[in-house]
Structures are given as structure tokens and as C-alpha cells.
Design a protein around this nucleic acid. Structure first.
Lengths: 162, 162
DNA sequence: TCAATAAGGTGGAAAAGTCAACGTTCTTGT
DNA sequence: ACAAGAACGTTGACTTTTCCACCTTATTGA
């Protein structure tokens, strides 16, 4: 699109890069939208969302569902509590964890932002057919799995170091 | 990498979120690979790569091609210069910019890493057909474009605030 | 020619994210 | 029952990334 790189690489070899670009763009977009509707950042919003949708409501499962590192999760949760979005209760089944309860403020934020982000989602895939969307989901799954491997022992001729 | 990559993927959650997860996984993978072959980080590697492929060789176009924020780009370029990967020359057509010249060290790094990342790329899409790959590229393009929009004025039914 | 505005790059500050050590709680095996 | 080991969340140090204000160079328009 901008300028087609020299054949060999072609467009083919730039996939991770393009995904990084796409992610960056999506992230920026989400950030603008979310910040316009409140004082939550993206990570905080995701936590609220997972709980609001009733997917999970205790710390570890929520953390896993949102894919946030446990250190940051702890910090974001504290921030949410401070800002009055959540109340943390002890969890009897596992006293290391907490039960996350959303406040009215959180639900209000969710009610406001949810539709906007739904509209955004629709907008994002508006130019794609159902079949194409299905392909994307498959591709994400496949690539995420393939991203596990890190040892690509290319037949390297004894490389001279510099 | 810290958080299990595949766990949250495939839960049927929203697309941007899954892309973020995928990006995170790909990023971690690339990080490991790149760091194993030298002292460049991802951003630095991309700069080297764009120049090595002859796509661009002056600052602004390289910056745009790599999609790196201009502040970080400046820092990464300084780091590359310090580490002896590039030499910066004044650019007469626009004295605000620089011409980026790669050193032998940079070319050597490129020669070593290029094949490995090519192998990685092949591995990533190994589970996808040609058609599916084509869909992905289209999807990325479509979504990246759609990510520009940030005003989703949803017809908000005047929701009662609390 | 000269001011006004835009674009590029730099550097400091803030935010986000990562990492490792620690205390508590849970689980497992004996 | 109890010790050993694992899982969880928290904290503080640290790194990376992002944001913003500033200075320089280009461009535009009068």
C-alpha cells in the first residue's frame, strides 16, 4: 500500500509487523474512546467488563480472562477500588482471592461505554463478510498457538561474529 | 509470556481484545528470537530491517514505515548509533532529517536474523491456506482503516444516572 | 522578504508494563 | 496431622513506552 517492499519479502513476511501496527491503531482508538467516557484506562475497563458481563467475579479467573499480568492486575484493581468502581470482598472458597463486586458507578460506566464499543466493533468488521470474520478468528487461534515456538534453528552456516 | 497465552484466546470475546492477546504472544516470541541473536530490541530491529531492505533510508519515511512513535524512534536511533549499528548523515533535502546508513555490524545482524524470522513467519502461517492468508491481509487493512474513527455517537437513550 | 504556521526531532515526565521477592493460603503426600 | 511445595496477591525496583512541551527547520502566504 505505501510502498511494496522488494519482492523477496513481499507482503508475506510482514505479518507480525502488520499485526503490531493494527494492534497499535486499535489500542489508540480504544484509549481515546474509553478515556472520553470516563477515567478508566483500558486494563481497568476490561476488568469491569468481564465482571459486568457476568463472565467471572473472583480475582484469579478475572485476571486470566483479561490476560493481564498479575502484578499489574493487582495495581489496576487497587486503582478501581480507590476510584470507587469496585468493592472487594473476601472469598471464602479461597482466602487468597477476592470477590469483585461492581459499584453502581461501574455499572453506569459499563452501560455508557458498552454500546459505544459495540458500535466500534461493528464498525471494525463492517467491511468484512461473515466468512472472512470466521477466518480471522481461526487465524488468531492458529497464530497464537504458533507463537509458542521460539527455536527456529535455521540451517545457519557457521556465523562469524563481529 | 507471563500470562498463559492461549488461555483467554478463544473465549469468544471481542476482536480487538483477541488481537491484543495475539500481538502480545507474537511480541514475546519475537523478543526472545531477536534477543537471542543480538542486542537489538524489536523496534531497533525493525529500523535496521527497513533500511537493509532498501525500502527507505531517511528518518521520517523510515519512521513511518516502521510505525514507531517519533519520540521513541529518536531514542532507538540514538541507541543504534551508540551501539554502532548505524551512522547518521545530514540530509540536504531537509535538514531536520537524517540519512541513515547501516554499518557492517547491522548488515551482519540482518543476515543472521533475516532467515530466522523468515522461518518464523512460515511457521506462523503454516496452518493457514493461501486464501486464508489473503483474507488476513485484507482484514488487517480494513480494520486498520476502521481504527481511525473514534467518534461513535451511539444513539444513547437518556439513561438515568445515579 | 518576512511573518505565521506546519513538520521534524529531542528530552523530560508520566504512565504502563515487567520482574523478583515475600507473606499468606491451599494442596499434596506421608 | 503435618511438613513441603505450589498458587495467589502484594509490593517495590526497574524498564519500556507514551505523552507533551520545546527548539529547529520548512513551507506557505502576504
Amino acid at each position: 500500500m505505501t510502498n511494496s517492499p522488494s519482492s523477496a519479502i513481499g507482503l508475506g513476511l510482514l505479518l507480525p509487523f502488520q499485526i503490531a501496527q493494527l494492534h497499535s491503531a486499535l489500542n489508540a482508538q480504544a484509549k481515546v474512546i474509553v478515556s472520553r467516557y470516563g477515567d478508566l484506562n483500558l486494563a481497568q475497563w476490561r476488568i469491569v467488563r468481564v465482571v459486568a458481563l457476568g463472565i467471572e467475579n473472583t480475582t484469579t479467573p478475572v485476571r486470566k480472562a483479561t490476560g493481564i499480568d498479575k502484578s499489574q492486575f493487582s495495581k489496576m484493581l487497587s486503582a478501581l477500588e480507590e476510584k470507587g468502581y469496585v468493592v472487594l470482598h473476601p472469598y471464602d472458597d479461597d482466602k487468597r482471592q477476592h470477590v469483585i463486586e461492581l459499584t453502581k458507578k461501574a455499572y453506569a460506566a459499563h452501560d455508557r461505554l458498552g454500546p459505544v464499543l459495540d458500535a466500534r466493533q461493528k464498525h471494525l468488521v463492517a467491511g468484512l463478510t461473515e466468512e472472512e470474520q470466521a477466518v480471522i478468528y481461526k487465524a488468531i487461534r492458529v497464530m497464537a498457538e504458533a507463537a509458542e515456538k521460539t527455536d527456529f534453528d535455521v540451517p545457519i552456516p557457521n556465523l562469524e561474529e563481529e
